[in-house]
């Protein structure tokens, strides 16, 4: 029973969600809305669990030499931001929004912008036409890079045309193949879970 009950719940939930898609009956809509509410509530609790886990891990790390100061800053952020929001609200001009705009946003943008430097360095050191497929990839990348910048329009509009062709045909074909693969894979997995064939969510029992 310990194993069968979760499987039965999973089967019934899966079937209800599958069948309600095709029904506009008020009962079906009500069940669907309630399930969506539950989904939100469960997810809100997972956020709480995540926050609690973060605090727990950070508190443990506080005692460790070297990383303690970083954990302290992270914990301070977790404590300070809600306090600022509770005291000063979240309107325009509030301390909460000021900290977000002037500390968090610039820090994240700074870290993200470092990517440009790594890409530049990696492009120089790693993007080599060692084989024919690598050469095709390299030439395509050059055209896409050129096509994305307006400077290329001063030379020839063909750069933009070629870029669109690469995006619309070879790239799109590959993307579609991947998307269809993902779709079929998701469908198969969902069917396996609903029918109780896939049981890894029950520790594989």
């Amino acid at each position: 029973m310990r194993n069968k009950l979760p499987l039965i719940i999973c089967l019934i939930s899966g079937l209800i969600m599958f069948l309600q898609y095709f029904s506009k009956h008020p009962v079906s809509r009500a069940v669907y809305s309630s399930i969506l509410d539950w989904w939100q509530i469960i997810f809100a609790f997972t956020l709480l669990v995540g926050a609690a886990a973060f605090v727990k891990v950070s508190l443990k790390g506080l005692q460790k030499k070297g990383e303690g100061k970083y954990k302290a800053i992270a914990l301070a952020g977790v404590v300070v931001m809600p306090i600022l929001a509770i005291i000063g609200g979240n309107k325009l001009g509030s301390p909460f929004l000021w900290v977000f705009e002037n500390i968090q946003a610039p820090m994240q943008s700074t870290v993200f912008s470092l990517l440009a430097f790594f890409v530049a360095s990696a492009a120089y050191r790693g993007f080599r036409a060692r084989t024919i497929p690598a050469a095709i990839l390299l030439i395509s990348a050059l055209f896409v890079l050129l096509g994305r910048i307006p400077i290329s329009e001063y030379f020839s509009e063909w750069f933009t045309r070629i870029m669109f062709w690469i995006q619309d045909y070879p790239s799109m074909a590959a993307r579609r193949a991947i998307l269809i693969g993902i779709g079929l894979g998701s469908l198969t997995t969902a069917m396996r879970v609903i029918l109780g064939i896939e049981r890894t969510y029950m520790r594989g029992e």
Partner: peptide, 14 residues
């Protein structure tokens, strides 16, 4: 400018 710089780097690297 950054894109152009990367293009030059790729060409020089090759």
């Amino acid at each position: 400018v950054a894109h152009f710089f990367i293009i030059i780097l790729i060409i020089v690297g090759n």
